[in-house]
Amino acid sequence: MFRLIQSSRARPAARSHLLLLCSQSLSGRPQAAARSASHARHASTDASSSSSDIRATLMAELKNAMKTKDTVKSITIRSVLSEVYAADKAASGTASPSAIVGILRKAASRRADSAAEFAKASRPDLAEKEQHEAAILQAFLPPLLPEADIDRVLREIVASPAISEAVAKGPPQKALGQVFKAFYAQVDKSSVDPDLVRQRAQALLASAK
């Protein structure tokens, strides 16, 4: 009998303890969600600012290359920075991060093209040098926008009333300029491969006719 009374008295205490645990668990969920959202915001900020400090990164890497006496790397970075300074002068101020990324992409592409030409000319030594310089520059570049994302933006533009009307009135390729204008109003030119954008735009316009 005594044990039964003890058991019945213990149950409210156990229920109270259980309710307390549930309350703590539920109160912790919003905090966890807030922490998760905060991490997501920080990740988004980091991704969006990846190209904003590219000038500082180039300068820092140039100093490191000079300290370690990496002649090829220091010469390669100096050559790009000279183009950046020319862009500063042309802009009557400071070239934008987007412009600097564009300069880097073109410089890396030129070296990759040169490497291919030297390889064709049976000059593996010069081809290797150009490939090495291209790799140095590519390491500074943010990733390009995936083809799927390019297609998504282009499809929305091609389906818009203005472009649909232009395609209906004449050859689809005549609307190409309008498509590019609308596309680059939404997408940073330095974040895409222009040749790929052209190819996909032409294909989508041809299929829209």
Rank of each mutant, 00 (worst) to 15 (best):
residue 63 K to M: 10
residue 35 R to L: 10
residue 93 G to I: 04
residue 83 E to K: 06
residue 9 R to W: 09
residue 179 V to K: 15
residue 148 A to N: 08
residue 1 M to Y: 04
residue 109 S to A: 15
residue 168 A to W: 08
residue 115 A to W: 03
residue 96 S to K: 08
residue 115 A to I: 03
residue 115 A to Q: 09
residue 35 R to P: 00
residue 173 Q to H: 10
residue 3 R to E: 14
residue 109 S to V: 02
residue 208 A to M: 01
residue 97 P to Q: 03
residue 71 T to A: 13
residue 21 L to Y: 02
residue 56 A to W: 02
residue 104 L to F: 05
residue 186 Q to C: 07
residue 114 S to T: 03
residue 163 I to K: 10
residue 28 G to E: 03
residue 181 K to M: 05
residue 57 T to A: 13
residue 32 A to L: 13
residue 30 P to W: 04
residue 103 I to P: 01
residue 109 S to P: 00
residue 135 A to S: 10
residue 10 A to Y: 04
residue 102 G to A: 12
residue 84 V to F: 05
residue 100 I to R: 05
residue 12 P to L: 06
residue 202 Q to L: 14
residue 205 L to P: 10
residue 198 R to M: 13
residue 129 K to V: 06
residue 32 A to Y: 01
residue 7 S to V: 06
residue 154 L to P: 06
residue 133 E to S: 11
residue 129 K to G: 12
residue 16 S to C: 06
residue 166 A to F: 06
residue 74 S to R: 10
residue 125 D to K: 12
residue 156 E to C: 00
residue 186 Q to T: 07
residue 77 I to K: 08
residue 54 I to T: 14
residue 89 K to I: 12
residue 51 S to F: 04
residue 188 D to L: 08
residue 63 K to H: 13
residue 43 A to V: 06
residue 198 R to D: 13
residue 130 E to W: 01
residue 185 A to G: 15
residue 117 E to I: 07
residue 207 S to Y: 03
residue 58 L to G: 01
residue 202 Q to D: 11
residue 186 Q to Y: 03
residue 37 A to G: 00
residue 202 Q to P: 00
residue 125 D to H: 10
residue 147 E to K: 12
residue 43 A to Y: 02
residue 153 V to I: 13
residue 18 L to P: 00
residue 159 A to L: 05
residue 17 H to G: 12
residue 161 P to N: 11
residue 155 R to N: 15
residue 39 H to C: 09
residue 151 D to G: 06
residue 98 S to R: 03
residue 190 S to N: 07
residue 140 F to Y: 13
residue 82 S to W: 02
residue 64 N to M: 11
residue 7 S to P: 00
residue 202 Q to V: 15
residue 55 R to S: 12
residue 140 F to D: 10
residue 2 F to H: 13
residue 23 S to I: 02
residue 92 S to C: 11
residue 33 A to R: 08
residue 170 G to M: 07
residue 65 A to Y: 06
residue 103 I to K: 09
residue 51 S to T: 06
residue 209 K to T: 15
residue 136 I to R: 03
residue 99 A to Y: 00
residue 206 A to E: 15
residue 93 G to H: 04
residue 76 T to I: 07
residue 208 A to P: 03
residue 26 L to W: 05
residue 6 Q to E: 13
residue 115 A to T: 02
residue 104 L to T: 07
residue 177 G to F: 03
residue 171 P to E: 15
residue 17 H to I: 01
residue 27 S to M: 09
residue 69 K to T: 11
residue 209 K to A: 15
residue 90 A to V: 02
residue 52 S to Q: 11
residue 55 R to I: 02
residue 64 N to R: 11
residue 142 P to K: 11
residue 102 G to T: 02
residue 95 A to Q: 02
residue 40 A to M: 09
residue 4 L to D: 14
residue 21 L to D: 03
residue 174 K to P: 00
residue 34 A to S: 14
residue 65 A to P: 02
residue 28 G to L: 07
residue 54 I to V: 12
residue 27 S to Q: 08
residue 124 P to Q: 11
residue 189 K to R: 15
residue 128 E to W: 01
residue 89 K to G: 10
residue 192 V to R: 02
residue 125 D to P: 01
residue 107 A to Y: 01
residue 121 A to Q: 12
residue 84 V to R: 04
